[in-house]
Amino acid sequence: MTDHSSRQAEDRPILPDERSGVLLPDNLERYAANWIAPAAEVDAVVDQFWHVSWAFPDGESADQRIIDLPAVTVTIEDGDTPAPLVVTGVQTGAWRRMIHGRGRVFAIRLRPAGLAIVSDLAPSSVRDATIPVTPSLDARLYEFMREVATTPTPAERARSAERVVAGLLIEQPVSEKGLLANAVLDELRARVRHRTGTTLPQHFGVSERTVERALMDTVGHGPKWISRRIRLQEVALALATRPDASLAAIAAELGYADQSHLTADFRAVAGITPGGYRRRLTELRAR
């Protein structure tokens, strides 16, 4: 088995001009937001590690919203946070939290196949929820997170998580259904700007029902919903980084029928219209 303790975790900033789904990307620097890529040996289970930390003056807060990737995320949290160990399920709307005081978070964003490896929870049981992880909620997930939490730094936590996951994979390899769900999600992420080509069943040589069931069982949503979510991440990125681009042009680039469909889709998830979102970004950048 690979000695993950000897690997130097690649720790890099989450940039405002990459597809992260963060709706106020200029805050990323305030939170010292960084990615850590997982080792290849565990990338069927872990999509990304990320970590943030903040120290706000008294009375200052930030309303952070994220159109996150369809994934279950488990977090180890310190300071002014809801709980020390937390699991967040796939969100229908934008994930939202009011940030204040001081704190830090180390997160493990799981692949579709990953939840079954580290937990006994079903994706439906944490859908649209952010829940403290306790032994009574899920003893297996609690032990995994508690072991990772014993190490102090994000890089050490990433290596610790990799060691534990590598051991779990020996006991329980990723299922064929999980591998298919991983591959379908990767394909949907890759083709977000390409609306033509083979269908997913044709691409993977399986039936439409097989694709649907693989995603429903691991993520809790089907391919159309997941594709829409990923496309909205791209919309958010375009709105934030291309202030002069028209909504009609962005809609056409991303395969929307027209500008009104983009507006309705974005507002339903982000809770604000694209125009309102752009105005909010302009106000924040003018401060």
Rank of each mutant, 00 (worst) to 15 (best):
V22T: 09
L115W: 01
A62Y: 06
N182Q: 11
L188S: 05
H4D: 11
P274G: 05
I14H: 11
R242T: 00
R96Q: 14
R7F: 09
E147N: 12
A249I: 00
A32K: 02
A33M: 14
R195W: 02
F49K: 08
G93Q: 14
P123Q: 14
A286C: 04
V86F: 02
R157C: 04
D3T: 08
E187H: 15
E156A: 14
R102Q: 13
E171H: 12
E208L: 13
A62H: 10
N34I: 11
R231K: 14
S260Y: 02
L232Q: 03
Q48D: 08
A39G: 15
I108K: 03
E41F: 01
P132L: 10
V219G: 11
A116F: 04
M145D: 01
P84D: 15
E234Q: 10
D80P: 00
L137I: 12
T196L: 02
P243W: 08
G79Y: 04
D244A: 13
D128F: 09
P132Q: 12
A238F: 04
R163F: 07
V42N: 00
G271N: 03
T150L: 06
A39I: 03
I76D: 02
V133E: 06
V90P: 11
T92V: 14
Q233K: 09
R228W: 03
T150M: 04
P243H: 10
Y256W: 12
A44P: 00
L121I: 07
L284A: 14
A33F: 13
A251P: 06
S207P: 07
E208S: 15
H194V: 08
A55F: 07
D80W: 02
L141D: 08
V105R: 01
T2A: 14
L215M: 11
E41N: 01
R102V: 09
E41W: 01
H100E: 07
A158F: 06
L200C: 01
Q259D: 00
A40E: 15
A240W: 02
I170C: 08
R213E: 14
G79A: 05
Y256D: 04
P57E: 09
N27C: 09
Y277K: 01
L232N: 02
T210V: 11
I117V: 15
R209Y: 07
A181C: 09
A264T: 10
D43I: 05
R228H: 05
P123F: 14
